[in-house]
Design a protein around this nucleic acid. Sequence first.
DNA 1: ATCCCGAGGG
DNA 2: CCCTCTGGAT
Length: 210
Amino acid sequence: MTKKDKANFILDQISKMYPNASIELNYRKNYELLIAIMLSAQTTDVAVNKITKKLFLDFKSLEDYAKADIKVLESYIKTIGLYRNKAKNLKKLAQMIIDEFQGVIPQDQKLLEKLPGVGRKTANVYLAEYYKIPRIAVDTHVSRVSIRLGLAKVGDSPLQVENKLMKIYDRDQWIRLHHQFIHFGRYFCKARNPQCKTCPLLKVCKMPMI
DNA sequence: ATCCCGAGGG
DNA sequence: CCCTCTGGAT
């Protein structure tokens, strides 16, 4: 079994488990998507959806965020953690898009990463979700799954994991792979108590916990 | 390398 | 109680 065969086997099996895996953040407009992704750092999408329901109802444009009181923004997002930084970033992000990008969210990796609270991972998710531009956003789940399955090594940075996955898998598989790896990591190959006993990938796993 | 940060799970 | 959750900035 070549390395490529193994990689394809892994993706095939995970695809069978989560054929319809997709983003779980709620949004209507592109700026709401970007905000939701930015807010989702180190928290669950369920927690983000809970607070964006009211946030998106009360703030109806980037201008609303740009002129908002930071303390008010904090009160909306208090429950998701890291709320002081996120509130500050939210206001500044809106201001920057208005002042430096003429109110239009850039469709460009490097420009997106200039926005406060937006790093490579967030930019990747945004470009893949909104424009269907092939990207593999590497988060804690993608890293963990990739390392356990031997597609990456312990100690690899998110960027190193991303590069290894991009090299192994075809470009047209990246977006779907990203969502399916995340679902697999979130619900099955969990950080704690992974379901190794019933895992279809047990035979190729580098670190089964049985 | 460390800080920011709360909620939920085990 | 401790660990983890779709990280980013310093």
